[in-house]
């Protein structure tokens, strides 16, 4: 079997005969109906659009995480990369805006800074993981600390205010055909990612690298280059997510990334990406993020205590992961 066939088959099995892809959509709809029955406000258009916006941020970060999870990797630095980009891009925007007096130039500087930092972090992560074959857990744990250090140092630990409002206007308030900007950005990214994963040699090779790196080498795949690209893609998507998230608040926040590292991994894995590598598709971040968002949105609206919400979310994570592992073990035992 050639590598193309192998990876094509792998993609097929990751789309079918899979617990999350069958049960998760049902669970998401059931959760929504359950909370909708308890609280009419859940069923309003306003809340639906709110839900879509909330879910799109987490979907973007979980999508980023999916790329490295497929190559049996991890990105623990995701959260602090978001924080670093948030403060650095805001500072660049304030500075350039002040120097040139043009909001558009400032916006370009903001986007360029954010993307440049994202690509740099991805390159560093990918370089250490692929070139020197270091454990991704430790590499990204190190970059987590480095990004956090830079984020708090350059901002002094304070928020960056006076960011020109064009950021908020373009990346948060704008809409097309009534669809808010974050949702559009999320959909565009998902479509692009789907094409990369299924139609491009790079995407299909990532699955083989994740499930059997040795075979990937034998098949003539430039494993190192592609692994670096997976990390660069991951952090590039993270950069876009960070800009969207910064636009929402309209200020640079040194703690913006907070729980995103764990949440993005949780969403990707709950949606069906496997930490053992070689498995994942764009459905994983969508479903994972929707479960988490519908659950917390519903719990918010029926006024469940925030700490109880956290406990319930944790139990849902554990239950989903345990069920998936059982399904996976049963399949591999066959």
């Amino acid at each position: 079997m050639t590598d193309t066939n192998a990876s094509a088959q792998m993609i097929r099995t990751s789309f079918t005969g899979n617990l999350p892809n069958v049960l998760l959509p049902i669970a998401i709809v059931a959760l929504f109906l359950f909370f909708g029955a308890l609280e009419p406000n859940v069923r309003t258009w306003g809340n639906l659009s709110n839900l879509a916006i909330q879910a799109s941020y987490l979907t973007v970060f979980a999508l980023a995480q999916t790329f490295v999870v497929i190559v049996r990797g991890f990105d623990l630095s995701l959260g602090t990369t978001v924080s670093l980009i948030s403060v650095a891009a805001s500072m660049a925007m304030v500075w350039v805006g002040g120097a040139t007096g043009s909001d558009v130039v400032a916006l370009v500087a903001c986007i360029a800074t954010g993307i440049a930092i994202g690509l740099l972090v991805g390159l560093v992560n990918g370089f250490f993981v692929a070139r020197w074959q270091l454990n991704p857990f430790i590499v990204t744990l190190a970059t987590l600390n480095i990004c956090m250090g830079f984020a708090t140092t350059i901002s002094g630990g304070f928020q960056i205010f006076n960011v020109p409002s064009i950021l908020n206007d373009v990346f948060y308030r704008a809409s097309f055909l009534g669809i808010p900007a974050p949702v559009i950005a999320c959909i565009v990214l998902l479509v692009a990612a789907h094409l990369v994963l299924t139609r491009f040699r790079l995407g299909r090779a990532l699955f083989l690298i994740g499930s059997n790196p040795r075979a990937a080498v034998v098949a003539g795949i430039p494993v190192r280059k592609y692994t670096v690209l997976a990390y660069v893609l991951c952090s590039g998507i993270v950069a876009l997510g960070a800009l969207l998230l910064t636009a929402r608040t309209g200020s640079g926040e040194p703690n913006l990334g907070g729980n995103l590292m764990l949440e993005s991994i949780a969403a990707a894995v709950m949606g069906g990406a496997s930490l053992r590598g070689g498995k994942g598709n764009i459905a994983a971040p969508i479903f994972g993020a929707l479960v988490i968002t519908v659950l917390s949105n519903g719990m918010n609206l029926v006024r469940i205590d925030g700490y109880i919400q956290q406990i319930i979310l944790g139990l849902v994570i554990t239950a989903t992961v345990a069920l998936q592992a059982r399904a996976e073990n049963r399949r591999s035992a066959k």
Binding site: I265, V269, I308, L313, G314, T318, V321, A322
Partner: peptide, 18 residues
């Protein structure tokens, strides 16, 4: 469950922290 220790203890982290 033979699930990944990372995900299992991530669940515990969330619950116990809560």
């Amino acid at each position: 469950t033979k699930a990944s220790a990372f995900m299992i203890t991530l669940g515990t982290l969330t619950v116990v922290g809560g």
